[in-house]
Design a protein around this nucleic acid. Sequence first.
DNA 1: GCCAACGTTGGC
DNA 2: GCCAACGTTGGC
Length: 154
Amino acid sequence: MQYWLMKSEPDVYSIQDLQAEKSKTCDWEGVRNYQARNFMKDMQKGDQVLFYHSNAKPPGIVGYCTINKTAYPDETSLDKKSNYFDSKSTKEINRWVKVDLKLKKVFSEILSLDFLRGQKTLKDMLLLKKGSRLSVQPVKKTEFDKILKLAGVK
DNA sequence: GCCAACGTTGGC
DNA sequence: GCCAACGTTGGC
């Protein structure tokens, strides 16, 4: 079992949007960064994922999910009308993948970036490192547990 | 809207 | 394979 953090801009897709899905699941489309993609390929069913709102007021962790389906082709890269179109991908050789998430919990309050920076035990989190922009990143079990505790889930 | 920190692209 | 130019991310 591994732990991850995934970023989404709430204007594009928020955790409330996920909550509004009947199935409480979503396809995590549109990742167009190799490092992020490689992490997605490493994900196993049942892995736990923190859901982060970026470009939000305030930015922060808003809940968590589990991996419902491991990596498979992201066909939005083939759709000329999609924002995620990639001219170098074909049906045969599609560079990009997505995973499916299932919502576990929406935190009662956002754990804002500011608040997280104030937590000494989280200071090594990738998310809090200067210049860290990865939209999919690994999280240590200790960090994940701490965050659930801070959110009042555990 | 600014801009620092990264990633990617493409000419050489 | 280097690296300058360009594009993107994302906090502020």
